[in-house]
Design a protein around this nucleic acid. Structure first.
Length: 607
DNA sequence: CTTATGATGACTCACCAA
DNA sequence: TTGGTGAGTCATCATAAG
């Protein structure tokens, strides 16, 4: 910790030096990570000037197609030797060779990489160009790349030869623009059927996210398994520190205490009447993005920067219902004239579950539940607690403090209820539905298992909280609203809008899980919705063409809403808390991509 | 096959005493 | 200001049980 502090207090020169060093090392990093990826080990990729046709006795059609693409015969031979006559694998290897060859020289001048990013989409120009610098590769990233490349390869294999040449051309084009082959492969895998501009957009987004990491000194980067952490010191008087320091700390967004965002029904923020949004952020469409508040450091800084530098609104749902739910929301909605859903939900455990009061021990001081998660306490745990308490029945009055403390700990951890003498129990699925603001049996039936109900509910919005934020839309859209709902889950956004009395004219819903899609479809029918519900299972299906079709069909979206996967961000995850670059949480960039596309398509339609 | 269960820490912040 | 402690967190995996 002392090291950190002394580092911070040093001059900015230190940072610069570190940055430069790091950037200078990048080409090597690129090289080694690529060779690792490909196991290319002993390749020499120096000379491709002297093409010797003699090394390839018979130029088959297979080889010729690569020659036509402009690859040197020598490399082609090596690639075939390595991968056999598999078009996808050979092409990938060739592109890797080329990337290895080009990257060290091309690093210094990166305008070729960055120009497409800026010119491809107006909204991209919002991004701070300071971050657009030389480096574009990161060491830690390569660990995942193996899988990505493999799956990308598989995808080529499955696609057959019909679409292969198109993919080859795209890959080649991107490689010529200076993107590493593996990065392009990943982008193509992640954004299937996407246009070139979208692919570039995607890679720019991912690239910038990684560059931001590079700009952070090692000891500030979020590091897993790294003992201590830097204590927050962002008091007002400390804001006057050196500029470098201020920039570094900008990435750390402070969570408000109390966590009431721009205000909750029972509590307002002094002086917070309205806010000024960056011009780029102003709709249409309105948008609303959600994720866990307690993400690893710097994650919210990144999210905010990708969403037009809007300040996130951190709100704990304990101000709306009987259970906590600390979440961050980035949106461009007005914040004046909000109103809560009625009837107001029960605000305490006792109000929500009056029957438990009879059995609730005085030493269980909980008023609210903790966050409702995807897993519940087991029956055996409840049994152990019962036995432990029964063993204490001989005591006069209450069990020993040590026992109380232990049991209370378990009760907090698993959100247990007192349902009988010495008997605790986890919440039933319909009780979770009620706490989260969903209609009873919302997730019930249709073949969904109990476990899956908990999982879907645990991943959902708290309806009252979100509805409070969305309530300002009621006056703005009296005739109804068109919604693009990404990562819809069990339809928290839809339910919130419906309960607000905002007619749902068209809802385009994207949700990967089939059971969740069925839940939303079933709710849609049960509530006799008059609008149209169009659903997709994959955000990657929503490319520019598809979005143009949809926008033309429904007449534009009024609201783009969604919360991307949090499982690589939440503290509950002990296995793969990898941050925004994690396998699932990286879908955030698809939210950004789609929002950007909708914005630009709609602005072009309006002209 | 599906479902339930237990084991698996790290990171971050609030709070308080020294 | 520093250091210690307690508390909370949209989870994942292997394996046993049904």
């Amino acid at each position: 910790m002392d090291k950190n502090l002394s580092g911070e207090d040093n001059d900015s020169i230190d940072w610069d030096t570190e940055d430069e060093l790091e950037i200078q090392e990048i080409p090597d990093t690129t090289f080694s990570s690529c060779t690792n990826l490909r196991d290319a080990g002993e390749y020499t990729v120096r000379s491709h000037g002297e093409a010797s046709s003699s090394s390839v006795p018979c130029q088959s059609k297979f080889i010729q197609q690569f020659i036509v693409m402009g690859f040197p015969e020598e490399s082609i031979a090596k690639a075939i030797e390595q991968n056999g006559e598999n078009e996808g694998l050979v092409l990938d290897a060739l592109l890797t060779f080329k990337a290895l060859e080009d990257s060290p020289e091309e690093q210094p001048s990166t305008s070729s990489q960055l120009d497409p990013c800026i010119s491809s989409d107006d909204s991209s120009s919002q991004y701070d160009e300071n971050f657009l610098d030389d480096a574009y590769e990161e060491v830690s990233w390569s660990s995942d790349s193996d899988n990505c490349i493999d799956s990308a390869d598989q995808c080529y294999l499955q696609d057959g030869s019909s679409s292969l040449s198109e993919k080859e051309q795209t890959l080649l084009f991107l490689a010529n623009m200076g993107y590493p082959a593996e990065e392009a492969s990943i982008a193509m895998e992640r954004c299937q059927k996407a246009s070139l501009a979208e692919l570039i957009d995607f890679m720019c987004a991912a690239q910038m996210a990684r560059e931001e990491d590079i700009y952070l000194p090692e000891d500030v980067k979020p590091k897993l398994n790294s003992g201590g952490y830097k204590k927050r010191k962002m008091n007002n008087e400390l804001c006057s520190r050196k500029k470098q320091r201020a920039i570094l700390d900008e990435d750390t967004i402070l969570l408000p205490n109390p966590m009431i965002g721009f205000g909750v029904p029972t509590q307002s923020v002094p002086g917070m009447v309205q806010r000024t949004l960056p011009e780029q952020a102003i709709g249409p469409p309105y948008f609303y993005y959600e994720n866990v508040a307690l993400a690893p450091k710097h994650v919210w800084g990144k999210i905010s920067r990708f969403l037009y530098d809007i300040e996130p609104e951190f709100v704990d749902s304990k101000y709306f219902c009987a259970s906590a739910r600390k979440r961050g929301y980035v949106h461009n909605l007005p914040i004046e004239g909000r109103f809560p859903l009625l009837p107001l939900p029960p605000s305490t455990i006792h109000e929500a579950f009056p029957l438990t009061k009879k059995w609730w021990p005085s030493w269980d001081v909980r008023i609210k539940f903790n966050c409702l998660q995807t897993c519940i306490g087991s029956a055996r745990l409840a049994d152990r607690i019962r036995k432990a308490l029964e063993a204490m029945d001989n005591f006069v009055g209450e069990p020993p403090v040590i026992v109380q403390k232990d049991i209370l700990h378990e009760c907090r951890k698993w959100n247990l209820l007192w349902v009988g003498r010495n008997k605790v129990a986890p919440l039933e699925p319909d009780e979770v539905e009620m706490l989260l603001g969903f209609p009873r049996n919302h997730t019930r039936g249709g073949g969904i298992s109990r476990t899956d109900r908990y999982k879907s509910l645990g991943n959902s919005f708290q309806v009252d909280t979100v509805a409070y934020h969305l309530s300002v839309l009621k006056d703005l859209f009296p005739k109804g609203i068109n919604v693009l709902s990404l990562f819809s889950g069990i339809g928290g956004a839809e339910v919130a809008l419906y309960r607000l009395g905002i007619p749902l004219n068209n809802v385009v819903s994207v949700e990967k899980s089939e059971v969740n899609r069925n839940i939303v479809r079933s709710w849609w029918e049960q509530t006799n919705q008059r609008g149209n519900l169009i659903d997709f299972d994959d955000v990657q299906e929503l490319n520019g063409d598809r979005l143009e079709q949809l926008i033309d069909k429904v007449g534009g979206f009024d609201l783009v809403i969604g919360g991307s996967p949090c499982n690589n961000l939440t503290g509950s995850n002990r296995v793969s808390r990898d941050g925004l670059e994690g396998k699932d949480s990286a879908l955030f960039f698809d939210y950004v991509r789609i929002l950007d596309l909708v914005k630009s398509i709609m602005s072009s339609r309006r002209v």
